[in-house]
Amino acid sequence: MKNWFKLISWVAVIMTGALLIYGIHDMPAWGDPDSPANAHVSPRYILEATEKTATPNIVSAVLADYRGYDTLGETTVIFTAAISCLFLLRRRGGKK
């Protein structure tokens, strides 16, 4: 039964890998400056970030200024994780 299970998982893993390798065929060349990911949205951030936010580090400018609500949501996620860890690991039956 154990070998059967491992065989099934190997088959699933290899099928997923084959699909992904089939998808590599359509990827643009690595490090291409004109690839769609590099040519569409990010030039606007690179050109305007210093002038609009007065921050030389573009990553910080986008993280805290352009996508500030995104970072707020991330902080909420960490807070929820910390609270759930506290509730999961609290000592039960302390009062008896």
Binding site: G31, P33, N38, S42, T50, P56, V59
Partner: peptide, 16 residues
Amino acid sequence: IGVKKGGATVPIIMGH
């Protein structure tokens, strides 16, 4: 995906 070949550096504006 974000890597650019051909002399691109880290995204920190120089000379600011």
